[in-house]
Design a protein around this nucleic acid. Structure first.
Lengths: 342, 342
DNA sequence: CTGAAAGCGCTTACAG
DNA sequence: CTGAAAGCGCTTACAG
């Protein structure tokens, strides 16, 4: 049994070479699985490596080979509402490739971004994921040119560079919600959308309208409303307004779980039964969705999968795959719970 | 103006030495601010560095000097409820030292932990922060011995090792809440605590009881209740039970914001006015606290500060400070909002 | 005060 | 198939 990481100086390739009576070049070849080593020598070296508990020094390797098997996540908001799920996806993908992930938080400050980027380049980081944890939108390229270091946008997109971005399919997600409400037999479906000026808001409205029209349903502007913010209070107020309208809806699709939370409260305060009187669908699938009463049917953002895809795209680029300005749109998933189906 | 990171091969120390007509040793000394360089030569070298836009290669430097200016966060749950705030603190501290932070997510699986640790050691990571994002408790040491690599526990604590841990002052936090409710003149203060078996639950109960007694208040077990979980539904049910008791409370301290959210709903359903009839205090200061109606007075967990302290402790250890088995308890802060004060 | 030399631990042509 | 040699880009005694 090898004494992993004993207090003594770490075993080096030289030690292995000496013990196996070969050159370090040969040890290196065995480690890197090069074909030009005889089977007998290969076995002897492999055995010695195991016996001594040898592990190649990644820093030395990086100096020679110029890649460090490290990527970085550069984000403007480490505490963004979707950050951790996205990060977990990236970390998953990287781990599968045996690559480490460095975290860099810029606070949206170009000077900090530059500082981080310099540091990351100094460390020969193989590639970068430039990520927003909050809000999909276009951003400019990195605050520093990154010659030879590929990067990928996650949950945001670049304007012009030949760089891929990974985004949720907000349009398809809204379509799922509309489809579901139609399928469970709702006659009058309202949409409480988020604030204007967000990509998500525009895309979700498209998906909603398209699906309604494709199903031969009119979209009544009277019950399709944007809100001033994503907060529950706006969902609450908007729901009351719709319920008080001449022809109130029997279903409400909300562009976020937070809005839906407010809607649920409004229905509750009005003494309406959910879903019998009004069915409610949210968007995001944040943890609060499942804890609502009743638990909230919602459209889940594919954050984990988005992170994984971004990680994989980046690692492929690091390994030489060509980069393109291309948007990867990841499908959302409908999670049906008691707010629409008894 | 230097052409930072031009597509051409990066400027090396050799280039600087040649251009400044000195040896690389001298360039190295200038960069590392060694005293044994003449003022004139120092200036010439510094100018050349600026002119050529030279940046030392951190990988080469790491190979020689054996430290990489990189630390890692090892966590069992990257999506833990408090993870991002803690990470941001660590990242802040590390950035201030010009140190990078690597992310390693173990999912609580020892095999994954070992794999990550091996990788981190291979990369000569200078130190580790072993962190829980969920729950304070004792954990065993790292899944692999880390000879010569210091580490610090964050939001959890080790059992025996000579290793510091950084924890929130749950006891003091509960004391702040009790003190506040006493100060605003409440006569009958109840406590809806979280589930048994949590460090936080035990500590918060102590803090609450101590403060009450110190103020000459009886602690009536009838209105001090643990819950089965931290979820709002348990806050709701427990609040109703307390309100229905013979002598109902005029103040409720809740051991989490989620519990308090349920309590608010219960008071609302009973038609009670907040804070006039019942004042409510939560714990954690999650973002939902400020969005309650009324906004929730709560005890803020000092997550950011905890992360910063852990980062600093680790970096000091990396720089040779001796490590001890010592618990750093970081004070919580009371955030007063409309659920206790009109 | 300055520099020549060795070396950190690997990998990579290249010779045999 | 195997190994001697050079070198990745630095830092560190050490000599002068």
């Amino acid at each position: 049994m090898a004494v992993e990481g004993s207090a003594a100086a770490r075993v080096t390739m030289r030690d292995v070479a000496l013990a196996a009576r070969v050159s370090t070049a040969t040890v290196s070849k065995v480690i890197n699985e090069r074909p030009d080593v005889g089977p007998e020598v290969r076995r002897r070296v492999a055995d010695t490596i195991t016996r001594l508990g040898y592990r190649p020094n990644a820093v030395a390797r990086g100096l020679r080979s110029r890649h460090t098997e490290t990527i970085a996540i550069l984000t403007d908001d480490l505490e963004g509402i979707f950050t951790t799920a996205l990060m977990r996806g990236v970390e998953d993908a990287a781990s599968a490739y045996d690559v480490s992930v460095v975290l860099a938080n810029t606070y949206g400050d170009p000077e900090r971004e530059r500082k981080h980027l310099r540091r990351l380049l100094d460390r020969q980081t193989d590639g970068l994921i430039i990520m927003s944890g909050n809000r999909v939108r276009a951003r400019s390229g990195p605050a520093l040119p990154l010659p030879g270091t590929p990067y990928v946008f996650l949950y945001e997109h670049g304007s012009t560079e030949a760089v891929p971005s990974v985004l949720p399919d907000d349009r398809g997600g809204a379509a799922l919600a509309a489809r579901h409400l139609i399928d469970i037999g709702r006659r009058r479906i309202g949409f409480i959308n988020g604030p204007a000026g967000w990509d998500a808001t525009v895309d979700r409205l498209h998906g909603f309208e398209e699906t309604m029209r494709a199903a031969g349903r009119a979209v009544d502007p009277a019950i399709v409303r944007p809100t001033a913010s994503w907060a529950p209070a706006d969902g609450y107020a908007t729901a009351l307004a719709l319920l008080d309208s001449a022809d109130p809806p029997d279903a409400l699709f909300c562009a976020s779980d937070d809005l839906a939370t407010g809607v649920l409260a409004a229905l509750h305060d009005r003494g309406l039964r959910i879903p019998r009187d009004v069915a409610v669908v949210g968007f995001d699938d944040r943890s609060l969705a499942v804890h609502q009463r009743p638990p909230l049917t919602t459209v889940a953002l594919p954050l984990l999968e988005m992170g994984r895809i971004a990680g994989r795209l980046l690692l492929e680029a690091v390994n030489g795959a060509p980069q393109r300005h291309e948007v990867h749109t990841v499908p959302c998933e409908l999670r049906v719970r008691a707010s629409t189906v008894d």
